[in-house]
Structure formats: C-alpha cells, structure tokens
Write a protein that binds this DNA or RNA. Structure first.
Lengths: 335, 335
DNA sequence: TGCTAAGTGTTTGAGCGTTACCATGGCTAT
DNA sequence: ATAGCCATGGTAACGCTCAAACACTTAGCA
C-alpha cells in the first residue's frame, strides 16, 4: 500500500507537503502540487481510510440492521439504502438480525465502537414482542444517531421513517366496502408487529364505521410456525361466504389468490383480494393482485436522507418522523 | 467515546498499563488487572475499531459485491455470507453493482483503500458481457484476496465457488428424457452469463446424446427488456407439442407453469416443468414446481470460508475452486 | 544603506487510539 | 553489593491532517 510517506520520499519533500498538495492547499506552490499529484496518480495512491477515520472521527459508513434479507420488503429497502448511501459518499455495513433480539444487540454492540457514524434499522420481531429497547437506547446515549424505519418504537427518541399503516388498511377496507362486500376477512402474518397491529386497526375501524356492514370482523393471524397454505384453506372452510380478503403482509395475498382460484371462486366478480406489498409478487399471479404499494424504495431513500441530515448538523434539532405515502393500486383482483 | 486514556486518568496509571491489563498481560499485577477491567466494564469501554485497524492493518471487514439484492439467489447468498462472516468475527460492507460494470469498478476502487481485508463478489452482467476484468485484476495485484462466486471468470486467478451448471442442466434434461418427453424447450433469462451458457450446454449435450430424440433443441433467450409473459405465450404458440420445459433461471419456470395451467395443459401428465432455483418461489405455485436446488446457503458459506482461509495464511498457496453440489428436487411438475 | 514587515513555500510536531518494545525503579535473594 | 524479578511507565509507530514554526524572498521605510 502506497502512503504519503512513500510519495514524500520519492519527491524529496515532507509528508505534510504531500498531504497539503493533494488537498489543493493554497499554501503549496503550483508546481509542487502538480508534481505531487502526478506521482500520486502514477502510483495509484489511495488515502488510507482507517487513518482518515481515526483522525477525523468520521467513518463515512452507516450500519444497516434489517430483520430479514429474504423478505422482499427489506431487500428492497436495503437496495434503496445502498443506492442512496453510495450516492452520498457513504458505505454501508449490513447486519441481518434474523428477527432475533440477541443478534440485534450483538450487531449494535459490535458496530458501536467507531465502526459507523450511525445506524439505520428496522426492529426485529422478537424485540418488538418483548418490547426491549435498552440496547437501542444505549446506542442513542452514546450519541450515535439512529434512523428507524417501518418497524419503529414510539418510546425511542430518534428519527423515523414510516408509512401510514392504519390509513392504508383503512382505505383498502373502505374500497372493499364500496364494492359492496359483505364478508371481509383480514389475514396477517405480522399481527405481532407494530405495523401489523396498526393495519388491523385500520381494517377494524373501517368496518365499524360502516353501519350497513353486519358481519363480525374476522382477523386471521398466522405465525411463522404455521403452514400458511393450511391456514388459508381453513379460512375458506370457515368463511364460506367470504367476498373480500385483505392481506396485510407480503405473501398471504398471493396464497389466498391461488387457493381461491383453485376452489373455483370467480375473481374479482365474487371475491376481491387486496395484498400489501411492492410489485415483486405480481409476476407470479394471474390475475394480477391488487395491492397497497408501500413505495419501499422511497422508504429506504428517506432513511438515508434523514441520517445524513442528522450527521451534517451537530445542533440537536428535534427528531423527525417522515411518513411515506402509500398507494392503493387496483389491478385484477378487485372490481 | 471512552478511550484508554480516560481509563488511565481515572485510575492514575499509564495508558500502556491499561492496554496491557485489558489484554491480560502477565506483566501486570492481578489486582491492577481487576481494577482496570472493572472500570472498563463500568464505563462500557470499547476498543476503537479504526485505531486497531490502523495499527494492525487488518479491518476484520469483508467487501461483498453482488449484482442485485432483489434477485432471491443473491439475497440468499448475501444472507449466508453475513451469517458466516459474523460467526467468524467479520463484518461485511455490502455493495450492489446493479449489473453495471461502472458501479462494480467504483465499489472495488472505493473499498480498496484499506476498508476491507478482501472481497467476495459475483460478477455483474455487463461486466461478463463486455468481458472486462481489469478492475478486478487491479485489486488482485494490490494483494487483496478475492473470492468469486456463481458468476466467475476463468481468466482471473483467485478462489472461486461455483456449482456444476453444466451437470445440473444435463441431469435435469436427462430426467425429462427418461420421462419420455419428446419436445423439450429451454428457457433462460441469463443466456448472456457464463452460468447461463453452461446450463444451456448441459441441456444440449443431453439431447444430443439421446439417439431417440428427434426434435431440434429449442433455446428461448429472454432479456431484461423483454416481457417475460409475452415470451412464454409465444413459447407455447410456436411449440404446440412442447411436453417438457427446463427453465434455467430463477423465475421463468413459475411463469411458464402459470401460463401452461391457464392454457389447459395437464401437469405433469402432458407437460413437465423443471425450474432452477432455491425454494423461494414454491409458495407461489400449485402444483409445486420441481427444481434444481442450488444450495445457495452453502455457496455463501463456502465463499466466506475460502476467504478466511486465504486471510489466515499468508503463504501463497494455490487458488481453490469449490464446487457446491446441486440437487434435482422432484415435486409436482414432473412425473 | 540597513532594518523591519509582510508574504511565500516548506518543514516540524503533535495528536487521533492502539499496541509492542524497551526502560525504569523497587524489591528480594544470593 | 548485585543479579534477578516484578510491576509499571515511556516512546514510537500505524497514516493522516492541521497548527505552528521556520526559512527565504521581496517590499517598505527611515
């Protein structure tokens, strides 16, 4: 690895002259600057990142902790974060918590040693269930900025990027009601998460507000351990007259659609289905699933922006919560 | 941030005493060690990563460059890499090349400044098409180790993790032939990639070896720009008698299955389909797609292992290529 | 003419947080 | 006394930047 010292020796000047020359300092003569730069280019000199970070106490690196890369939502968020971070001159160190509190604690711990300038994260399922946040507060106390996205925690004082989960589910349910649906079932594999609860509440509220809706609300909660297909089968068995399904997670809408088609429901004539996701699953369904689009890319991008704003201003301004708009996209599974 | 200096001041000992105490040096008295450790724990002291890296010229960080996080194969590989790296005490800096040569060059360049101890990467599509590898050689020349996985390049002297693409496709085609299929079509959206070509060759070889197979081989190549569904429609139109489909990429098998069902083919009686992927898409199909399983998790894990082996031995041993076994998993779309 | 003042281009030195090596001082045992 | 051991302190170095110091030139003025 070629260092300033090497350059300095070759050019018979001091290390700091080389340093200043490379940084275009006005203190240095023009010809010297040129000589230095030429040699630097020729030897393919790269300033050592670690030395820079040590000196400046800035790493230009963000820690990103997501619960699950195999979940398309998080993969896309990660993609957006990586894109935006790169654009802004930051690298990202990625950790996957695997929905586990312990891994989350571990990752935060390990990266809080000057490895990163801040964290962008979405909280693990276990963490939300147990409602443990000390590990996060500890990071915050150290003065490391943090942006939480999607799965946030109201108790924590930091910047956040969320969507209007309640409103989105409310609007989707409203749409089904306006179609004249009389037996709308909600299915969710995220009922334990903050976002899941909010979406369920949106559904309940919409039903409750509609005086002409007679049916009791039906919330079907699936856990990771359950066999999703079995649950969906059971859904149809125990709700013979179902004419609307709202899936508030990534995948159950697709499964419900397949099962419904197999059972001979005519879609969207007799049964409407609305899913909750980005466009990833569309290639897999026929007709195309109507969905609430989360604009995942914008969520990731906004998270990075908030982080960089925070890093650029040491003055401790109020914490910001950005809400990304969702959009109900009607395709083939709604009237 | 609490440093050795802080601890030293508080304890009225020198910095080097603290350093040695924390590292359990036999030079230091037992009681001192204990006093130091207690305070360190109490103040939540963390050794500064940057200072350590600067000193030791080791970062314990790996650069991971993948073409596309939204592709399930790469997401899973990334997951495996992250898991294994964490287990071995390494962090990963993730970059997404987006299948672009320029981003790949950029990422390698930016991280070759002492940010990482080595690279694990899979080559971008554009890079493979243009067959440009100088940016990779440059990294290798600098002495940074690199492990290429899946999309490799034979010209580069480094460790590699691959699967037997040729053999896997050959075996799958053989299976279709053994079922008595007489008109087997291959569909691929990765025909431009090294792995795609190998798989196609496996298919061709199997057909060629079967004297009783009369039909000309049909290779349908889809590009990103094409509408996959249209192409599949066209496949069925122009191959009325198709009775076997081998999809050598991640998604086209699922689309083919859907279209075939819609067109009324009875599967697997009249038509067999074999896809090429991990288990991710299964939840979306009915019947379940038979696939060649790539053991993506093992690929990621093996990549990290190779890298760490390489890092732990400075003696320049021969470069290794690990081949991960594939497995033909027969489910609902084959007899 | 001689001396200071100001400017120019450079070097020196300290410090970021660590650790490795060497030095020091106090003690005991011969 | 002095060799030998123990516990600790001091220094340099990793690669970098920044403030301060230093030469050396030129201008300004008595």
């Amino acid at each position: 690895m070629v260092t300033l010292k090497h350059l300095a020796e070759q050019l018979n000047v001091s290390v700091s002259t080389v340093s200043k020359a490379l940084n275009d300092s006005p203190e240095i003569g023009k010809d010297t600057i040129q000589r230095v730069k030429e040699l630097a280019k020729h030897l393919n000199y790269q300033p050592n990142k670690m030395a820079l970070s040590l000196k400046s106490n800035k790493t230009n690196t963000l820690g990103v902790i997501i619960p699950d890369v195999l979940n398309h939502f998080f993969a896309k968020a990660l993609y957006a974060i990586e894109m935006e971070a790169t654009k802004q001159g930051y690298n990202i160190i990625t950790c996957v918590s695997n929905e586990l509190l312990s891994k989350e604690e571990n990752s935060l711990q390990l990266l809080s040693n000057g490895s990163v300038d801040g964290f962008i994260m979405s909280i693990a399922e276990e963490t939300q269930k147990k409602n443990k946040t000390e590990h996060i507060s500890r990071v915050l106390d150290r003065g490391l900025p943090m942006v939480l996205f999607d799965r946030v925690c109201d108790d924590l004082e930091c910047d956040k990027v969320i969507i209007d989960d309640f409103g989105a589910a409310y609007e989707a349910t409203k749409h089904l009601l306006n179609e004249g649906r009389k037996h709308i079932v909600l299915i969710s594999d995220i009922e334990k998460l903050s976002v899941g609860k909010l979406r369920t509440n949106g559904y309940l509220k919409a039903l409750q507000e509609d005086a002409s809706y007679k049916q009791e609300p039906v919330v079907i909660s699936v856990t990771k351990a359950d066999d999703l297909e079995e649950v969906v089968d059971h859904l149809f068995d125990s709700n013979k007259n179902v004419d609307g399904i709202l899936s508030v997670d990534n995948t159950s809408g697709v499964v419900a659609l397949h099962k419904a088609l197999k059972k001979g429901y005519s879609i969207p004539e007799k049964l409407s289905i609305i899913g909750f996701s980005d466009e990833n699953v569309l290639v897999f369904t026929e007709p195309k699933l109507s969905t609430i689009s989360q604009h995942t890319f914008d969520i990731g991008k906004a998270s990075v922006k908030l982080m960089i704003d925070r890093l650029n201003q040491k003055s401790k301004t109020e914490h910001v919560t950005t809400t990304i708009k969702t959009k109900l996209v009607l395709r083939g599974t709604t009237k």
